[in-house]
């Protein structure tokens, strides 16, 4: 049964082949009490694709990506990550979470652990690496996000930009196939936004599959393969950055862009 749904969903999006899709979202609804946060969402993300989701606040962007690693439970429809269906089966959920990394708006680092232990947490406690192997890997990732010298500090001793890079390293330590970014720069002081965006750009260039919810239109224009505009729980318009930013078709997209640009 799940196979049929998979095929069905793949027909709906135009340009991508189903074999390429790593994330398939099919007819997904999500309600909070009476409020419909997601309405009939169809979407696919291909391997190595960078998708940026934009839209006014309360439009359901965050809810959408939080459904992908089941921090929110969708009420109807189907979500597949790398062929695994998100069901109530806890083993499937764990498997999908292992393969998707997430970076949060508020970093959500573990304040009682050092930076190094934060990053080593996933490899050690989920993938079962030895302490020394996990810390070695963590150190590599901290070097990659350019803050190896902060390894023995606690999160609160770091700047916001550094904390978010630690959070990025922590997610990457699980060697995820997909990275989800939930407004990663919204809580940062303006002068720190770029250091995080640069790290994300580098990641995109290395071929990571990414779904990014953000208000950074410059980043979307430069890095995104596709931009999705959401409003009111619906996907209003999908297109390349040029299509969306320079030549939006829908009235709502135009209105939103005129407000923020």
């Amino acid at each position: 049964m799940s196979n049929e749904v998979f095929k069905d969903a793949s027909k709906m999006s135009g340009d991508r082949e189903s074999d390429d899709a790593i994330i398939v979202i099919d007819s997904v609804y999500k309600r909070f009490k009476d409020f419909e946060a997601l309405k009939n969402i169809h979407m696919q993300v291909g391997r190595k694709e960078v998708v940026v989701v934009i839209g006014p606040s309360g439009s359901g962007k965050s809810t959408l990506i939080r459904c992908i690693n089941r921090l929110e439970v969708h009420d109807e429809g189907h979500i597949f990550v790398d062929g695994t269906a998100l069901t109530t089966d806890i083993r499937n959920i764990q498997e999908i979470r292992r393969e998707t990394g997430m970076v949060f708006q508020n970093f959500n680092l573990f304040p009682h652990l050092t930076v190094l232990t934060n990053v080593a947490m996933g490899p050690r406690r989920v993938r079962g690496l030895s302490k020394s192997a996990a810390e070695e890997l963590a150190m590599e990732l901290l070097t990659r996000v350019k803050i190896p010298e902060q390894a023995d500090k606690f999160p609160a001793q770091l700047s916001g930009g550094q904390q978010q890079r630690v959070a990025l390293a922590r997610a990457l330590a699980m060697t995820p196939k997909v990275m989800l970014f939930d407004e990663p720069t919204s809580a940062l002081d303006p002068e720190m936004i770029n250091e995080v965006l640069d790290a994300m750009k580098e990641l995109a260039q290395e071929g990571m599959t990414m779904i990014v919810v953000t208000h950074e239109m410059g980043f979307a224009r430069e890095v995104a393969d596709r931009v999705i505009f959401m409003d009111n729980g619906e996907i209003v318009e999908v297109g390349t950055p040029t299509e969306i930013f320079d030549n939006p078709k829908e009235e709502r997209t135009k209105k939103f862009l005129s407000q923020i640009l």
């Binding site: 979470r97 949060f104 959500n108 573990f110 989920v126 997610a171």
Partner: peptide
Amino acid sequence: GQAEAGKALGLS
């Protein structure tokens, strides 16, 4: 957010 960060890593 603390528990969510743990869940996102795949911790039980």
